[in-house]
Design a protein around this nucleic acid. Structure first.
Length: 641
RNA sequence: GCUGUUGUAGCUCAGGGGUAGAGCACUUCCUUGGUAAGGAAGAGGUCGAGAGUUCAAUUCUCUUCAACAGCUCCA
């Protein structure tokens, strides 16, 4: 008996019935077989040792496949558990899944106190056990036997997990002296794991439930080569260097003060230059795209948010109401849309007016839980580059396409080359969670999917990720270190026009309801700035740099000449300063480099006499002498958005 | 909000039951210099805040605030 195996390249090979993926790999090349971690058979990831009994498509998974990595890390979690059990007998185990980079295991150490000082010992134990090359052995087991095993072991967490499992579908995996309840799959043996690092320790509630016991979560990462671990640690170091909180302080972009309040950023002058430039850049693009600027106050009557539905849904996440002597209640504005709806309502609208696009860099305030606050990425007061488009149903797709263009233009201008779009739809199993009619949801979802497809966006679709009022398209960018960030968002909303009773008069002289589109290419200026800082490591594109040049006079004698240069550059809207300190040129250069100022203009005796400047570029060094005109034209060429 | 860790000069950090230290930054002076740190002197701290133990607390205990990591959440 033979079976036909289809490989990813489309080739079909014949194997005896019951052949395993590992055998298939061996038949292709020994080198491949050495690297196979698991296999994807007809789309399901399975052990490489699983016999295949029917015609199937088989993809062999190695370290280079996402699923291969996940299997590797999940198997590593078992190994970590084995190491823990051998070092700290009596440890109880919760769950140990693979995550984006690495894996964790939630464990209950009982009386044992485990802290960072134990990491090294644990890592050594993991590697010691890995070297034994123990096979991961799969075993199907009855629920009764499984319960018996963990009752005897006294592991209440595994028993809790077993409760939710169906008899007949329960499997154990054993490697070395450790047996775990696990669906699998796993890598062939522990010998693949050549490097291990325990990264972090944290608390986590059993099953994510605050009322349950808190377990110790151990984060770790493993690799098939020592070199890969080293590279990974270097990457982490680089990420640390780029941390926007650190660079924000060093480059004097923003700060926080306990006296002002947590989560409330204070923009310093240099940060404000950056921020204003981002705002002006987008304003200009939006003007071209037919947006109109509007402005609304920082607080709004409670009635407004009751009308919008946000009060009911998010009232608890707001700051406390502000009370007036007349016993009215006001809230700090948590979003701009209700205000924009009222602007729309300020006069009767005709279909000829649509689409109307109101844009506002509106600062909003939300009560974020204290533990959530993080630098500029999660704050309690932030400015959205918000806009609301009011249009007819038939215009939704067209508007959506235009917004996508705008978002992509922004990304390109700021150097985000790598992005994907996430289409967030309703959870079909839980439609009650959302407000609005089925019909409208279907239409909106269709519009988004089509628009994304027409623009050729690289998309992923997530069910259940939609906002409660409508589906959305979120843009995720990958930064220079390969980390993913969610930035821009475009959301269709049929509900708010309904709640605010928005209308327009159609060509038929009847009243119709417009559709709203919320969109923000940056998301929030705070968050965007944070991502931008980390993306470019503080080396902003020239047009955004808070200080574009610094003039470095060789000595005090050339300060007047320096000033004349500075004034000439300012005439051209090029912004910078003069380093008038009583320091040597080497020192001034060093400090300018550290401050990441793009151009250093050295002026001394020679320059003053020849009426030139000597240009030095950050990171690159001396570009030689030139006259001011050449510098300005070079600058303008490079500063183009 | 929950759990854990941390909180000493503007920044990075050392120290420790007897009222405090380094480097960088800052101020002044010397130096007037040519491509990544010139020299000297000086100033700067209720040791996050409040309470308790003690002859004595910045150090020990408790409470509180904040930061960090994670969990839960995110219009």
């Amino acid at each position: 008996m033979t079976i036909n195996i289809t490989l990813p390249d489309g080739s079909v090979r014949e194997y005896p019935k019951g052949a395993t993926s590992m055998e298939i790999a061996l038949s292709i090349s020994e080198g491949l077989a050495r690297n196979v971690l698991a296999a994807k058979v007809n789309g399901t990831v399975v052990d490489a040792s699983l016999p295949i009994h029917a015609d199937s498509s088989v993809q062999l998974l190695t370290w280079n496949d996402t699923d291969g990595k996940a299997t590797f890390w999940h198997s590593s979690a078992h190994l970590l558990a084995e190491a823990l059990e051998s070092l700290y007998p009596g440890t109880k185990f919760g769950i140990g899944p693979a995550i984006e980079t690495g894996f964790y295991y939630d464990v209950d150490f009982g009386e044992v106190e485990f802290n960072q000082e134990h990491f090294k010992k644990l890592e050594d134990k993991i590697l010691e056990l890995a070297r034994l090359k123990s096979d991961y052995k799969r075993q199907e087991i009855s629920k009764t036997d499984a319960i018996h095993y963990f009752t005897q072991k006294g592991d209440e967490y595994k028993l809790d997990l077993l409760e939710g499992l169906e008899d007949g579908k329960i499997t154990f995996y054993t490697q070395g002296n450790f047996t775990d309840l696990c669906r699998g799959p796993h890598i062939p043996n522990t010998g693949f794991i050549k490097a291990a690092k325990v990264m972090n320790i944290a608390g986590a509630y059993w099953r994510g439930d605050i009322s349950k016991k808190q377990l110790t979560r151990l984060y770790a990462v493993t690799f098939p080569k020592q070199k890969e671990l080293e590279d990974y640690l270097l990457l982490l170091e680089e990420a640390k260097k780029r941390d926007h909180r650190k660079l924000g302080r060093e480059l004097e972009l923003f700060t926080f003060s306990e006296n002002v309040g947590m989560g409330l950023p204070l923009w310093l002058p240099k940060g404000t230059v950056l921020r204003e430039r981002l705002i002006n850049f987008l304003k200009k693009a939006q003007e071209k795209a037919g947006y109109q600027q509007v402005a609304t106050p920082h607080i709004g009557n409670k009635k407004l948010y009751v009308t919008s539905g946000h009060y009911e849904k998010y009232g608890k996440d707001s700051f406390q109401a502000i009370h007036t002597p007349e016993e009215e209640e006001y809230f700090l504005k948590p979003m701009n849309c209700p205000h924009h709806c009222e602007i729309y309502k300020s006069k009767p609208r005709s279909y000829k007016d649509l689409p109307i696009r109101y844009a506002e860099f509106g600062t909003v305030y939300r009560y974020e839980q204290s533990g959530e606050l993080h630098g500029l990425t999660r704050v309690r007061g932030f400015t959205q580059d918000d806009a609301h488009l009011f249009c007819m149903k038939e215009q939704v797709k067209e508007e959506f396409l235009k917004v996508i263009d705008l978002v992509l233009y922004v990304f390109k201008a700021l150097g985000f080359e790598n992005y994907t779009a996430q289409i967030s739809l309703r959870d079909p199993a839980n439609k009650a969670k959302y407000i609005g009619s089925d019909e409208n949801w279907d239409l909106a979802e269709r519009n988004i999917i089509e628009a994304a497809a027409e623009k050729g966006l690289n998309t992923v679709t997530e069910l259940g990720e939609a906002a409660f009022y409508g589906p959305k398209l979120d843009f995720m960018v990958k930064d220079a270190l390969g980390r993913k960030w969610q930035l821009g968002t475009i959301q269709v909303d049929y509900q708010l026009p309904e709640k605010f009773q928005l209308e327009y008069t159609g060509a038929d002289n009847q009243k119709h309801r417009p559709v709203m589109i919320h969109r923000a290419p940056f998301g929030s200026l705070e968050r965007f700035t944070a991502v931008l800082i980390e993306h470019c490591a503080g080396n902003f594109p020239l047009w955004l740099a808070p200080e574009q040049f610094i003039i470095l006079p060789i000595s005090e004698k050339y300060h007047d000449y320096a000033l004349s240069i500075k004034q000439a550059l300012e005439e051209e809207d090029i912004r910078g300063s003069i380093d008038e300190r009583d320091e040597k040129i080497g020192r001034k250069i060093r400090d300018a480099e550290v401050a990441k100022i793009p151009f250093m203009l050295v002026v001394g005796e020679k320059e003053q006499t020849e009426n030139t400047i000597q240009v030095r570029k950050k990171h690159e060094g001396d570009l030689g002498s030139m006259n001011l005109e050449s510098f300005i034209s070079m600058f303008k060429r490079e500063a183009k958005v």
